[in-house]
């Protein structure tokens, strides 16, 4: 748990009835907290007084920072979720999983080929996949994680990149994987290989880069760089904006 506790604002364990509205009881790492009904897990934690510095980011379901695991009473299932996207429910036992431990491997994308060998040489554990599907079940994005890993073993980088396109890197699959696969970085690599070597190049971007390299905009840039802050602000405010 990445949180800072202070006497005034630190987490407040159950102290009896909270005033007004209906409340539920959640358990954070085994300790009970009374929180209003209808909050996301993230907001419930903050209501309870946790000041999160890790394990929280965009609050919109895009950054993958706020992964949690929880169990509901009467279930054996270990469930996974993004705290900012999931409602807190009565009786929930939860823990933050703000980080799946793994060092980001370094590689030179220019020297790699868009094939499975490039991925396996850096992430050999991909070949340990047991097809158990624990990863897919853990994915808060609902991706077919196992299928993406399986696509790599059979050399289909394009399929893997597309299946993993919406991966936000929360790492929950990597925590659950019995083959200890580093999915987050594996998927980052297959998307990079796909984007660099397999997707058709955007013509207009290439043309624009050529223009820039040929110095077509140098003069304009020089002019801009000589302007004062006031002049820049005025220019910015008076820029052409497409009518909605």
């Amino acid at each position: 748990m990445s949180s800072k506790e202070s006497p005034e604002t630190g987490p407040r364990p159950v102290s009896g009835k909270e005033e007004g509205g209906k409340t539920i009881r959640i358990y954070v790492m085994g300790r009970a907290y009374e929180v209003p009904e209808g909050l996301t897990i993230l907001k419930a934690l903050e209501y309870a007084g946790f000041r999160l510095t890790r394990g929280v980011g965009c609050r919109g379901g895009f950054c993958g920072a706020c992964a949690v695991m929880y169990r509901m009473p009467g279930e054996y299932k270990l469930r996974t979720a993004l705290a900012c996207q999931t409602l807190a429910r009565d009786g929930m036992h939860l823990v933050f999983i703000p980080y799946a431990p793994m060092k980001k491997p370094r590689y030179d994308i220019e020297k790699l080929r868009p094939d499975a060998g490039s991925v396996i040489a850096i992430f050999p554990e991909v070949t340990r996949c047991l097809a158990c599907n624990a990863c897919t079940k853990a994915c808060p994005q609902g991706l077919q994680v196992m299928d993406a890993i399986q696509a790599i073993i059979r050399g289909d980088i394009a399929a893997a990149a597309n299946l993993a396109f919406d991966c936000i890197g929360c790492g929950l699959c990597s925590i659950r994987c019995p083959a200890e696969i580093r999915h987050v970085y594996v998927f980052q690599l297959v998307r990079r290989l796909y984007g660099k070597y397999m997707l058709p190049k955007a013509k207009h971007v290439e043309e624009r880069i050529k223009e820039i390299e040929a110095g077509k905009y140098d003069e304009e840039m020089e002019k801009l760089m000589k302007l004062s802050l006031e002049e820049l602000k005025r220019l910015y405010m008076s820029r052409d904006i497409e009518k909605a």
Partner: peptide, 22 residues
């Protein structure tokens, strides 16, 4: 339409099921 890595070598352990899943 869908198929999975067979495992390349069968698990010989009498108590194993997970390695047969593919």
């Amino acid at each position: 339409d869908k198929w999975y890595c067979c495992g390349a070598t069968i698990s010989l352990a009498a108590d194993d099921v997970i390695r047969h899943l593919g």
